[in-house]
Design a protein around this nucleic acid. Structure first.
Length: 294
DNA sequence: AACGCGTGGGG
DNA sequence: TCCCCAAGCGT
């Protein structure tokens, strides 16, 4: 018989996750694949605490893809509220329509079918396949990228995102067995979100501290992220946000004069309106701007 | 490949 | 106060 071996990285994560997992409602055993899919759309670049109330309201109102598909896109954008990146609301509505048209109203479990849906990329497709259907795929989000960079590569920050490299790195750690793989995918994300955080990691409380290459190396502060996020104040994004807030609040076309009163830079407002229309988030009529009805 | 895309939490 | 960061995706 072999000697007793040290727990693997995945086993350490799994043991920790069994107790430390937050009781998020979309992780409950009885939730539908649609509920998981909605949570993944909302969680794209958005923290759990902000998603929780919007997800609950959304699932009560639109418990199936067909329910959402039958509503006007404008209602989806309104229900999205201030979650941010409102294109996601439009994409989710479009995905629901595609699910009804192509998959009989049932969220597909296959990677290719999921990837073909609007707004679903490499992360979300694998997250839905893994968490809603138990399929064995590597699931890599920003948390997992950071956990692997530190524990395996010994670096403080993950390198530039590369789907192929990131999936390969996670695959190298992924347990063979289906349920163990699913738990490791979820556990690695959770670890990055709650312990191995970007700014102030809690290495003392980390379940993988005994196997962390970064900690073993003395937590070297290697090259920090290079590209700084663009300033929001005064940005086109801010103007779009202001316009969209007006459109969400109004239930009749919003006159251009009202919008002009909300932003002094006419050229920038014009640009924002143009991109909103191009994105399908706004439509222009004789009486002004509205959210899309169909 | 790098950029544009919202809004807010937290150090 | 500011600035970093956040369960990414489409182009």
């Amino acid at each position: 018989m072999p000697h007793p071996t040290e727990p693997s990285f995945a086993e350490l994560v799994d043991d920790w996750f069994a107790d430390a997992a937050r009781p998020l409602p979309w992780r409950a055993a009885e939730v539908s694949p649609w509920a998981v899919l909605v949570s993944e759309f909302m969680l794209q670049q958005t923290q759990v605490s902000r998603v929780l109330p919007r997800w609950t309201a959304w699932m009560e109102r639109w418990p199936t893809p067909a329910a959402l598909a039958s509503a006007p896109p404008a209602e989806a954008v309104r229900a999205w509220d201030r979650l941010g990146y409102p294109r996601r609301a439009l994409w989710l509505h479009e995905a629901a329509t595609e699910i009804v048209e192509r998959h009989g109203g049932e969220v597909p479990s296959g990677l290719d079918e999921l990837l073909a849906l609007k707004g679903i990329g490499p992360y979300t497709a694998r997250a839905v396949a893994a968490f809603a259907f138990g399929e064995r795929h590597p699931v890599v989000d920003t948390n997992t990228r950071r956990v692997l960079a530190r524990a395996i590569d010994g670096r403080a920050h993950a390198g530039a995102p590369s789907t192929a490299r990131d999936l390969a790195a996670m695959s190298a750690q992924l347990p063979v067995e289906r349920d163990a793989a699913r738990r490791f995918n979820a556990g690695a994300m959770e670890l990055g979100a709650t312990v191995c955080t970007a700014r102030t990691p809690d290495c003392d409380g980390c379940p993988v501290r005994s196997r962390c290459a970064w900690l073993a190396a003395g937590r070297p502060d290697d090259g920090a992220p290079k590209r700084r996020q663009a300033r929001y104040e005064g940005s086109d994004r801010q103007v779009r946000g202001i316009v969209l807030a007006e459109l969400r609040a109004a239930h009749a076309p919003v006159d251009r004069a009202l919008l002009d009163a909300r932003w002094s830079d006419a050229a920038q407002l014009e640009r924002a309106l143009g991109t909103l229309v191009a994105d399908g988030l706004a439509v222009v009529g004789d009486e002004g701007y509205s959210l899309p009805d169909a």
